[in-house]
């Protein structure tokens, strides 16, 4: 009886963990070539501004958005302090932070219409109008 209860408890724990692991994607216009994670990071840090002669336009969600925070921590590997420091230094070097949009829906619409646009969102918001470049889940 006790053994069965423990098995049941462990199974529930595992299933619960699976159900809470949200998935996110980095998406781009359909004309965008495949990009490595290093290139994606460089685009969002404005180190790369053209790829295949197309101007790349990285788009951030607004600064307090939870998905943006996950993107910065898990893809850019930078916390808020480092990013503030980074963009102030980039101002001295002549680079601007990415533009921001208020919703994932707005990003999807923009990415769909504009060559070189690249953004990120929850996997549930993706459809086949955009190209998925990279997928990640909560760590």
């Amino acid at each position: 009886m006790t053994t069965n209860f423990i098995k049941f408890f462990l199974l529930c724990s595992v299933l619960c963990n699976f159900s809470y692991a949200d998935e996110y994607v980095i998406v781009a216009n359909k004309n965008m070539k495949e990009l490595s994670l290093g290139e994606i990071k460089a685009i969002f840090l404005k180190k790369i501004s053209f790829t295949n002669d197309i101007k790349v336009i990285p788009i951030n969600l607004s600064s307090r958005d939870a998905v943006r925070s996950k993107f910065e921590q898990q893809i850019l590997k930078m916390n808020l302090i480092k990013l503030k420091s980074y963009w102030t230094k980039q101002h001295y070097l002549g680079r601007r932070p990415p533009i921001t949009m208020k919703s994932q829906e707005a990003i999807k619409t923009f990415v769909k219409k504009v060559d070189g646009a690249i953004g990120y969102m929850n996997v549930n918001n993706v459809d086949d109008s955009v190209k998925i470049l990279y997928k990640w889940s909560d760590e």
Binding site: S36, L37, G38, E39, K41, A42, K47, I48
Partner: peptide, 8 residues
């Protein structure tokens, strides 16, 4: 020149 790979 910058490689922009995982190891820059």
């Amino acid at each position: 020149y910058n490689s922009y790979t995982d190891n820059d």
